[in-house]
Design a binder for these strands. Sequence first.
DNA 1: CGGAAATAACTAGTATACAAGATATATTTG
DNA 2: CAAATATATCTTGTATACTAGTTATTTCCG
Lengths: 275, 275
Amino acid sequence: MSWEMKSREIKQAAQSAAKASEAQRTRKPRARNAPPRANGHAAVPAATKNSDVVYRDLRNAIVSMKLVPGTPVVEKEITERYGISRTPVREAVLRLAEERLIDVVPKSGTFVARIPLSVLREAIVARRALEEVTVRAATEKASESQIMEMRAIIQRQRETAEAGSEAAFHQADDDFHAAIAAAGRLPGIWGMIQNIRIQVERYRRLTLPQPGRMATVVGEHGDVLDAIAARDADEAVRRMNSHLDKLKLDIAVFRDLWPDYFVHDGAFDADMLAD
Amino acid sequence: MSWEMKSREIKQAAQSAAKASEAQRTRKPRARNAPPRANGHAAVPAATKNSDVVYRDLRNAIVSMKLVPGTPVVEKEITERYGISRTPVREAVLRLAEERLIDVVPKSGTFVARIPLSVLREAIVARRALEEVTVRAATEKASESQIMEMRAIIQRQRETAEAGSEAAFHQADDDFHAAIAAAGRLPGIWGMIQNIRIQVERYRRLTLPQPGRMATVVGEHGDVLDAIAARDADEAVRRMNSHLDKLKLDIAVFRDLWPDYFVHDGAFDADMLAD
DNA sequence: CGGAAATAACTAGTATACAAGATATATTTG
DNA sequence: CAAATATATCTTGTATACTAGTTATTTCCG
């Protein structure tokens, strides 16, 4: 069940050596000042590159804790697994480094990053603030059809919870929060929340094996939606906050259970749990 | 005064062809499982790479509107300017593409991205939400010395405003908001705010030539700090919000003045200004 | 046998060469 | 002369080769 299972062989472009004979070039170069499209480049599906595949696989492996913090990430190894060159692999690694999921030590090695406790704490705070905005906007602006959509998502999540399908459950969880942002006409903020969530996701995976947690989540989502449907913004925000707060109960416990997975960087202090 | 002035010549590594003779290798490879450092890799200043230089210069040129939206960004051109190869240039371009400051059209060209109106609107909303968190935390936790520090920053900003030094003024502006986040023990959230700010910064530059604006900003900062010093969180948040709201008065006007600089993507609708 | 210096092998960073596709210019054709 | 076609030459994406720095191992010396 290692993450290598997910990596498909990427078709490697055959490198034929036939090079065009170099005819004399007497033509003057053109201007090429035209921007791509006036409307805003959403027509083409933006062909998925090899580096995107590597990025997605690596990212999934890291946030799902299949690659635990401290694991070396060797470019050459990935290169061979996918049958591609270092360039796209390196591209993916650099993207992950910018998201602080990977640490690159120059001329030495790259490793799956440890979870910084300070980032963890601030990410939870920031997410609360942004979810509050989306919930409030959704309460104000959600159409009836959007509320029905969200009820459908919750029902789907209930079904996946009963079936015990973890991946589908997480997907439905994502969809619910995204639907709230969409109902509030703030889809971009959902994107920001997702970026923040990455930082917390690995910690959340460590806390997963709580029995009955999935059913609890479904219930809390229902509570939030009820308040939105009743157009009670303050209550909706309160319920969303209490939903999100379930996460940070026992950071200290898990930090002590897996000390190697966390790093205690500067801005972390004792009031992390008191907040 | 073009942005090329800022690009310094980067020392190019001389490429001597002397390759070590390949002696027979009978040694078995080592393990190399050790993570970089147990404490968290903050010792080394992380030597600034060539790609970092290109990234910073390009980014500055874009957010300062020296490179206006739609301008082609040709890798080869940058390559020649800095005397380096395409690899680090490409690295910088890709980073900027992820920040949505650059649009890369595969096999065709890359261009300075237009400012998406929907992102603009949501970025302003998100920033308000996060600044509210930091202001509230600062009101609660700021030490006296930190408040004095912030007064000093405001005074410095007043001096730069009187001197008309725009760059120093912006720096002091940054420092003030950063100091608030630091006082609230939420430095990471300031980082998030900065990322969001990039999306708005270019629009802000278009609105700059408002006479007396700098003095107004200094005054508003002082008002916010007064409320923090008085430990009146609600008032501090109110003043910060009114400070930030100065930005979004007339988006429609500027969109009509420079239609080519903006792009009207999906999630934008008329209530953008009504909010 | 223990510790320090030498050395080999690995790492990321960079340079360069080529491939695949897109776009503007040149050419042909009605 | 206009429109369609052809072609040259851009562009980014990828592969490969090499450099410089780091780390583990070996070797040498006491």
